[in-house]
Design a protein around this nucleic acid. Structure first.
Lengths: 227, 227
DNA sequence: TGCGCCTAGAATGCGCGCATTCTCCGACGA
DNA sequence: TCGTCGGAGAATGCGCGCATTCTAGGCGCA
């Protein structure tokens, strides 16, 4: 990602990363003064950054009451998956129709590397999966070349616990997930958008099942402080 | 809509309305100093508002270069319709499954009033359609009770020329559009989500055709100034 | 006449400080 | 003991001003 040239832009990137990393958990207070001090800028760029993040639904910003990291209820998380399950398969189909040889090779490379580092066993490295997975899905989004879809999806993916949590996968689900990437590449190679669409649907349903098992037991709503 | 209590919040609402109203056309410059003066506030809340609107993709905000109203290419507009055509039918189906008697009566009322004020003839009032139409679609969104869908859709609808332009409809398209609302209510009453889904798909395809006829002739990209 | 450099003006980026509002906590009364 | 009231401290809302960057127009030179 291109480094922002303004202070406010940098603060946005830093805060977004910290929120998605769960360094600031849902409900955590984001005090302007404190953040400004820690980041070495004045309150002004921090305020602007918080406004932008509020528009992205990453933080809540009630008037006169300071900013907190947004919380997602189970219903909302399910809704996010439902949204992805609606958008991504269709988007994958569009991508399949447009992918050239070089694109397919790139996806193949990513899927293969994910299979290598993600397969259950002594060499498994779940954290290494995150950037590869992001790259894979990002490539599909770019191939589809549908700006509004990309924007809508970006909003949906901007949710903690999503796209960033491979530790929750049991071995069987993980194997399925890795196989899906490979199969999507096969569908691309076969020039079969419907096949690709179907696999992506399965991919997301699998991810949804993992999420439900992870989140259902404990509550998602939290109200931690960070002092 | 609840009035914002902060200056920055009010500025956001005012600017958003002015942009969607096409008072500030795509490409128009939004100078902080000038806006602050006109709105009777300092530059600080204006800056924050512009940041938020930039996050909503309503304005472009390149560093050190001031804000301009975002432009939408034909491709992007088509993509917006594609997105709506993907989300709204599904969302309508969900709404159909949840609607109670009172909800259906409310939708019926809206659809009937739209038919009354929108039907071609001497009493036609295309501007009166806008709030009714917004209310109808908004009711569907609320009924579906899918927060992520609602957010994604809100982003898509925040585009000039969309949902606000009934003047572009020819008589036949207008009659179809009005009939669709009535038919959706019928599908709800019949408890048939698939029927509702299908009608909504047709509704959006019809709207898309109108848009293409409207926009295709002239370019959408513009670069006006407002001084 | 056309191209490039340079300067004046204006606009943005952001630090700073005061007025207002909120939160927390102790005192008072039921 | 519980609930209400009130004040001190802290945080937010926003106006203001300076440093930096961009833009426009004029001048010199090829």
């Amino acid at each position: 990602m291109a480094r922002a040239v303004t202070s406010a832009g940098r603060v946005v990137e830093i805060l977004r990363e910290l929120i998605l990393d769960n360094t600031f958990p849902p409900g955590a207070r984001l005090a302007e003064t404190e953040l400004a001090e820690q980041l070495g800028v004045s309150r002004t760029p921090v305020r602007e950054a918080l406004r932008q993040l509020a528009a992205e639904a990453l933080v809540e910003l009630p008037p006169n009451r300071g900013a907190r990291v947004a919380s997602w209820s189970l219903d909302e998380l399910e809704s996010v998956f439902e949204l992805r399950a609606t958008l991504e398969p269709r988007l994958t189909g569009m991508a399949a129709a447009r992918a050239g040889e070089a694109d397919i090779a790139e996806l193949d490379e990513l899927a293969t590397r994910m299979l290598a580092v993600g397969s259950p066993g002594p060499d498994q490295d779940r954290d290494a999966l995150v950037p590869l997975n992001t790259a894979f899905h990002g490539k599909l989004v770019r191939l589809a070349d549908a700006p509004a879809f990309a924007a809508a999806l970006a909003g949906a993916v901007r949710t903690p616990l999503i796209m960033r949590n491979f530790h929750a996968y049991d071995d069987a689900s993980m194997r399925r997930s890795l196989a899906h990437h490979i199969e999507i590449v096969a569908a691309f190679r076969a020039g079969d958008p419907q096949w690709a669409t179907a696999v992506m649907t399965a991919h997301l349903r699998n991810a949804r099942a993992v999420m439900l098992r992870t989140v259902a037991p404990h509550s998602v709503q939290r109200d931690e402080q960070t002092h």
